[in-house]
């Protein structure tokens, strides 16, 4: 019975590891950024899962409601999402710039180019 309560965390771990795998196993830079995004979303889900209280409701004060979910993780993740898209944009800008300089966005291709004089 106790294990059922942990299923959410396990799916978060599966998602996180999927993102991790994409980042380390793929050479394509855009794919790596997508992997980082999945990793990021898994952390968000983890926080929001922890914030949930059984029988609670959204943390907007109203008459007649006594149980609310925890607002603090919501605040952290809310800002983290917008910061996440800003940093993703920065990463994509670097990818575009790398493509300009090397003509490829595959990791080992431009490492090979660096080796040549």
């Amino acid at each position: 019975m106790e294990l059922i309560g942990l299923i959410n965390y396990w799916i978060v771990i599966v998602l996180m590891m999927t993102g991790f795998y994409i980042v380390i196993a793929h050479d394509n830079l855009v794919k790596k950024i997508v992997g980082l995004n999945i990793f990021q979303v898994s952390v968000f889900v983890f926080y929001i899962t922890m914030a949930k209280v059984k029988g609670g409701t959204a943390p907007i004060l109203a008459e007649g409601i006594t149980t609310y979910s925890n607002p603090l993780p919501h605040v952290l993740i809310l800002t983290a999402i917008v910061v996440g898209v800003a940093t993703t944009a920065l990463g994509l800008a670097l990818v575009v710039r790398i493509r300009d300089a090397y003509g490829t966005i595959e990791d080992d291709d431009f490492e090979n180019q660096d080796g040549e004089p």
Binding site: I48, A51, T57, P73, H74, A89
Partner: peptide, 23 residues
Amino acid sequence: ILDAVDVAFTEAAVGAGISTVLM
């Protein structure tokens, strides 16, 4: 579903909108 309405709002606007366009 997990009661985080503000977060859901942000995720829908950012993830499904802006970041897809940028990618």
